[in-house]
């Protein structure tokens, strides 16, 4: 029986908000995998996002990319951001997260998948967030394709608008609102 190889090796990271520690010390690489079977072995054995405590994150990034803006693969990039209302934690959150992971490991964006860095899910009392990070916020065609395909994969209604924010803008935003570089 041969395992099904993935195009990329991925790392799954966990972040728990412990204010007594430095930010980076709260970030842990759980494990890496590069086959479909190993993905499921991992996914089936970790808590679903809806069970995590507030302030926690999961991140899944291509091997060699760390889940932070500062990483050389992320610093010129941005993210398609899905913000969820509080009541969606029970109903949609885990489903959206799995669909996001399947999009990534299955190279669901075709040739545009080369711009994919990874995905982050933030569990927050004020509303959970899921994002797909890409490497170059200037690649308009690639970013727009990924946004449209991602909306489709999540089954989001056409009229629901999602925004893409460059990390550079998010990092330097003055108020709590970050301007969108693209919307679909």
């Amino acid at each position: 029986y041969m395992k099904h190889p993935l195009q990329n090796r991925w790392g799954l990271w966990f972040y728990k908000n412990d204010k007594s520690k430095m930010w980076q010390d709260n970030l842990r690489l759980i494990t890496k995998f590069d086959t479909v079977e190993d993905f499921w072995a991992l996914y089936n054995n970790i808590q679903p996002p809806s069970k995590l405590s507030s302030g926690c994150d999961y991140s899944m990034f291509k091997d060699g990319i760390e889940p932070m803006w500062e990483d050389r693969s992320n610093k010129c990039g941005g993210r398609w951001l899905i913000t969820l209302a509080k009541q969606h934690r029970r109903t949609e959150l885990d489903h959206f997260w799995l669909e996001t992971l399947l999009c990534l490991i299955g190279e669901g964006f075709g040739s545009f998948s080369r711009d994919i860095c990874g995905s982050v899910i933030n569990i927050r009392a004020k509303g959970d967030k899921i994002a797909i990070w890409t490497s170059n916020a200037e690649n308009c065609e690639t970013v727009t394709y990924i946004g449209k395909k991602y909306k489709e994969s999540l089954g989001l209604p056409q009229k629901l608008v999602i925004g893409y924010q460059a990390h550079a803008d998010t990092a330097t935003k003055s108020n709590s609102i970050t301007k969108n570089k693209f919307v679909v």
Partner: peptide, 18 residues
Amino acid sequence: GTRIIYDRKFLLDCRSSP
């Protein structure tokens, strides 16, 4: 070059196969 692409149905089927 080639790219290994799996659709979600295939990935979900792999989850249930032993």
